[in-house]
Design a protein around this nucleic acid. Sequence first.
DNA 1: TTCACTGCAAATCATTTGCAAGGCC
DNA 2: GGCCTTGCAAATGATTTGCAGTGAA
Lengths: 140, 140
Amino acid sequence: MIADFNAYSYLLQHDIKPSVQRLAIVNYLYEHRTHPTADEIYEGLLDEIPTLSKTTVYNTLNLFQQQAAVLALTIDDKNVRFDIDTSDHAHFKCLNCGKVFDVPAVLNSVTSVTLEQGFLVTEKHLYLKGYCSSCNNLSK
Amino acid sequence: MIADFNAYSYLLQHDIKPSVQRLAIVNYLYEHRTHPTADEIYEGLLDEIPTLSKTTVYNTLNLFQQQAAVLALTIDDKNVRFDIDTSDHAHFKCLNCGKVFDVPAVLNSVTSVTLEQGFLVTEKHLYLKGYCSSCNNLSK
DNA sequence: TTCACTGCAAATCATTTGCAAGGCC
DNA sequence: GGCCTTGCAAATGATTTGCAGTGAA
């Protein structure tokens, strides 16, 4: 499942000094593509690292963001969600079950939006909301 | 500047019973297209309505959202911002000055994203981040 | 030894909730 | 009178901050 992913070199590639906690968080994000919250990551790692503190999870995720090793999603207005997949895609949040799905959108094509002169775009987020197939079928 | 906008009928059109507070908030949003936070709206109306409570601002904005009279933006990870313009457009947030700009994007064209069978999309948000012309020129 | 990393406890801040008082039909 | 709206105070919950202890180079 972890396949050829090397958490250690992933951190080095992003100029992040590896540690037990940092490696665990990267691996958690690599294995759980559910766009977890800081709290979900913390809870998910407690068995593995019982001494882990939530502060460390927040510190680490903030560091990862700075180094562009993860993407912070604000599709949820309650808490920030994290995605280790920084490739070109959009997100869909089901308003019923709350799950956040990856959507294979081509965000680059969105670049066609007309920006004023001198605006420099460094980040693009396309958030879709509605009802996923499971929740949508229930109401039929 | 207020032109032909009628806050009273705007509320009625959205099945919202008018009140002094609700009218003031709608007018504030109509006149301040800066995507204000709940707190900014509260502060901005204190002179006009000194007895206004922040709870009422939150209650009202939540009601407006339910009735689709305003759009809630989560482009900012700190607090939710509100937009009375529900027409087709995107948003750009400057990472330096923090301002949120309207972008004349055609979100409908974004519909071309491939969604799985049975996914029902009810809301689309395109958030761009980077540096606005003022902040971008400073660094040159 | 030094300096960065960790983790506990406390602080902060946006938002919600409980509830009592006031106002409108 | 009854119900909806308002607003205060307190609660909640995510995230940050202060700071002391630990550990690795």
